[in-house]
Amino acid sequence: MTGRLVTSREALLAGALMLLLALVATRFPGFVAPANLARVFNDTAPLILLALGQMAVILTRCIDLSVAANLALTGMIVAMINVAAPGVPLAALIALAVGLGTLMGMANGILVWKLDIPPIVVTLGTMTIYRGTIFLISGGKWVNAHEMGAAFKALPRAVILGLPVMSWVAIAAVLAFWLVLTRTTLGRAFYAVGGNPRAATYAGIDVGRTQFLAFTLSGALAGLTGYLWVARYAVAYVDIAGGFELDVVAACVIGGISIMGGVGSVAGALLGALFLGVIKNALPVVNVSPFWQLAISGTAIIVAVALNARASRSRGRIILRRAEHAA
């Protein structure tokens, strides 16, 4: 019975999300109009992208606090290149963004894998290094909308089949991640490494290498999101997406991805991100100051982690026979 409850954690979260939407709809019915929901989804796309990468990392019992700084740095670099050399094709810039993000993720992964430094320390450190580097290369100056090329800014907003490219990228990433986690040996390895590292070693899986690959994936997504973010908001400066790493971790924790590793699903990460996205977009609608958002996501993290811990509490060895016990 408890087993059924745990497996339907995603269903529970989906129910909570529906309830939240219904509550907002009572005050402001327009919020749940399809067009507005699409807007909310589009707004949440960066969070979804980063939450997917973070999920892979958390599945392997690590954490990546450098994602937002990674995003900001790649965003700044591609924006500056776009300003300095407008001739560089957009495809090359996007490839560069993904490549840079990947490299930064690999740097985290190498430190965790080869030097066995705790992930929290590594990514706290690289977070400030990446963020500080933005200042070094930009001199603290902003890259503004009018300096960026039209094509550079247009792509994330371009509408295909009724949805902006930004949304399509998020949808594609969700599908790709679902495929990776359920249909590839790498995906299996993520779960195995986090769920039972010793047994994973026995099954011939290299734990450190798997964690490295998770960080690499997280970095690649952060890089891609870096371009999308800067292009969509048409501005780049040192502090963009400041503190966003906490939202990302919050989305994962709310989505039922256990910080102890090995537990979580793509649907969970998606729903966790959407939950936060809906709250963020609903606050102004129901006349609550956006300054409430930080406290709400903090509360959501604490509640979610407490609930998850309760659900997965281990049940001892069970020495007494069940039949005798029932008697």
Binding site: R183, T184, R188, Y191, A192, G195
Partner: peptide
């Protein structure tokens, strides 16, 4: 020593799963 979060089939074939197109499981 198995993995609670994986399915029965995944547990059985962890490390030597049959591959199909594109190297996907």
């Amino acid at each position: 020593v198995l993995f609670d979060e994986l399915t029965v089939a995944e547990n059985i074939f962890l490390g030597h799963a049959p591959r199909g197109r594109f190297g996907l499981i």
